[in-house]
């Protein structure tokens, strides 16, 4: 019997992705998740919220959580009011929820071929593999390919127990 060509359901064709900067690293998010990119705007702190989503912002009349993924990616925290905000729509179950991601800057939109994605090297890459699928090389440097659905999975707050 003739062998069928290998089928991989997860792999699709090349995908356009937005490259953003965070603590000196380049991170890629598929543009299908990106709603818009806006400049930093005033934010409201949420008392006792998790370090993952410590603020709320107003994006065109909608209240949206402002998410900082530095801690999840094991990067040092940095509290600042500059940079850009990437508004994302992330599927969760049957629905999709809108959130805003804090970034130091936005670089470009590029096509990423899934066949070129390499696994993270075992050493020297502190990022948890459930959040970073792998990396590709660009101009001699790494671009980390994010796993949006797990990276933006909500975590519960740090309210003191009583």
């Amino acid at each position: 019997m003739e062998a069928l060509p290998p089928m991989d359901e997860t792999e699709t064709g090349p995908e356009m992705s937005l490259i953003l900067r965070l603590n000196g690293e380049s991170l890629a998010i598929p543009v299908r998740h990106v709603h818009e990119v806006i400049n930093a705007i005033p934010r409201t702190r949420v008392p006792n919220a998790s370090a993952m989503a410590p603020w709320l912002i107003n994006v065109r009349g909608a209240v949206v959580p402002l998410v900082d993924v530095r801690r999840r990616l094991k990067m040092p925290p940095r509290d600042h009011d500059d940079g850009r905000i990437v508004v994302l729509d992330i599927p969760r179950g049957a629905e999709s929820h809108r959130l805003a991601l804090l970034a130091d800057g936005v670089e470009e939109v590029m096509e990423i071929d899934p066949l070129r994605i390499e696994p993270l090297p075992p050493r020297g890459a502190p990022w948890p593999i459930e959040f970073v699928r792998g990396s590709i090389r660009r101009d001699g440097d790494l671009v980390l390919i994010l796993e949006p659905e797990s990276l933006f999975e909500p975590e519960t707050g740090s309210r003191p127990l009583h």
Binding site: P42, R43, T44, V46, P47, N48, A49, S50, M52, A53, L56, I57, N58, G61, V63, V64, P65, V67, R92, H97, L99, P154, E155, T156, G157, R159
Partner: peptide, 24 residues
């Protein structure tokens, strides 16, 4: 409140004030 803050029982929700900022 979004799923990120749904566990915070202290807040019933959020609203947008006259100056466009969010208040809990």
């Amino acid at each position: 409140m979004s799923p990120f803050h749904a566990d915070l029982a202290d807040f019933a929700g959020a609203t947008i004030l006259g100056d466009g900022t969010v208040a809990l």
